[in-house]
Design a protein around this nucleic acid. Structure first.
Length: 117
RNA sequence: AGAGUAAAUUGAAUAGUCGCUGGUAAUUUCCGAAAGGAAUUACGAGAGGAAAGUCCGGGCUCCAUAGAGCAAAGAUGCUAGAUAACGUCUAGUGAGGGUGACCUCAAGGAAAGUGCAACAGAAAAUAACCGCCUAUGAGAAAAGGGUUCCCACAAAGCUUGCUUUGUGGGAGAGAGGAAGAACAACGAAAUUAUAGUUUAAGUUGAGCUUGCUCGAACUUAAACAUAAUGUAGUUCGUUCUGACGUAGGUAAGGGUGAAAAGGCGAGGUAAGAGCUCACCGCUAUUAUGGUGACAUGAUAGGUCAGUGUAAACCCCAUCUGGAGCAACACCUUGCAAAGAAGAUUAAGCCUGCUCGGCGCCUUCUUGAUUUGUGUGGCUUGAGAUAGAUAGUGAUAUCUAUCCUAGAUAAAUGACUAUUUUAAAUGACAGAACCCGGCUUACAGAUUUACUCUGUUG
RNA sequence: CUACCUAUAGCUCAGCAGGAUAGAGCAGUCGCCUCCUAAGCGACCGAUGGGGGUUCGAGUCCCUCUGGGUAGA
């Protein structure tokens, strides 16, 4: 993921979550905010402890990261993006195809894809 | 064949495409003041039996080198062994459960002391409530008296033939009362009350004899009377219960309870009792076997009086210093401290106390509180696999081979195809410094040994 | 990561040196009162987080699991 770095600090997460734009899909929620750099996107994934045990949370993280990786090259650059899992959804329903559908819908709505594509 | 017991193994595999995190090698001389980092290519590696819970133990690091003694607090608790250590494991002992294979047990001390044992029960721990037995008193028997009934006589009353009282005689159907309870009556003393009575003193009013008298005026005190309260007590008063009371002996029996004072039988006794005896149990001593827990036998003991609870306090024995990899060290940034020596004992620290140690201050020397997407700590280790030897076993020793995750917003994923399978989309579940255990979760599959039941031979 | 606390009716709390039929307020249901409602009165309903152990007996003591919370670096 050449164009992307991970969000790590707590204050960075808080900044995006409080000031970013909110988009909701069927299973996942996304917060978007423009950052100061032009070179990179910042990616953060957060899933609550209450959603499930460690194995399942890790699995969902991987699914989201994989989906992001597949569309990474088609995205505009210079954004901070945070993915969250919807609290009410059972984490056992997590699926590659469902998340792919959600993610594409949200990025369409947010107009994140480059115009060429 | 069915049901079961114990131990162990396993916890999908292969290929392709895209991608992730370390390692090794090479390249780029790309970034940075530096430590160091970044990119590309190749090769090879990449979660578990529980990685989980964090319930124990240890390594490692720092606190003084982790110290000495006492106390406090905590843990453990049959024996022997294993181990670095353990609360773990192995082999035994004892107790309990199961037809059995086998399973379970925090299994020291209740005669050092304290506490607790609800309800029920006579009694819950220094057993005498009932019962049983003995003595004595009462009772029963006899005599006398009285009561009840019948008869006779006398007196009184009135309703004039009955009632009551007294005296005498007779009868024996009924009655008879130790003790207790309730009620009634009486009630010492005491207390309270009374326009009570008397006496004394004082005040006040009236009278006249002017210092005495009188008052059905007042106050105080004493005595008496009356009333109330009704205690101690009394009553051939009423009613009820109704045969035992007292002093001893006795643990055989007594509905309860989780638990009842060694069990059972015989003798014995006034009745009973380990009072005596047999058997069983218990305790002590001793012999033999065993490293030991303990087992077996012998002898003695009836003061075998003293139940249970210590996952109640406690006692005894053994053990434990504290904090934790966000420990700690280094680098970077650039803040005013750090180190050594000397002297001193005033704060403070080392868990409470005593010792002991560090610490104030001065001098000399030296650059570092804090900051961070930093580096190390970080994986070669009480390691793994295979074999041999010793041991019943836990395990130990030796030999050979191997190096097998090291992340830090945190790496194993996605898609496709095939195979095995009853099922693969589908058990429980994600390393975070590292080990040894314990506990808990878990779809299923497989193997070995053994037990019981049934059927057939 | 480490250390610690806690769990009792639908809700908020009592209950502790083991002896209970587990109590109170609010809530709920029914009845009385009222023209009706509220308030009031009376009755009822309803709980020891799960599983084991010690004990004659466990809400209380011990072990273990599950949930909730707090503190420190």
């Amino acid at each position: 993921m050449k164009k992307t770095k991970m969000l790590k600090k707590n204050y960075e997460f808080r900044d995006v979550l409080s000031r970013g734009k909110y988009y909701s899909g069927e299973y996942i929620e996304v917060f978007l905010k423009k950052n100061k750099t032009d070179k990179y996107n910042f990616l953060g994934i957060a899933i609550s402890v209450k959603a499930g045990k460690a194995v399942r949370r890790n699995h969902v993280k991987r699914l989201i990261r994989e989906n992001y990786r597949l569309v990474e090259n088609t995205l505009k650059v210079g954004y901070s993006i945070i993915f969250l899992w919807k609290k009410k959804k059972d984490i056992r329903q997590a699926d590659f195809q469902k998340i792919k559908k959600d993610l594409n819908n949200i990025f369409d709505k947010a107009d994140l894809f480059e115009v060429n594509q």
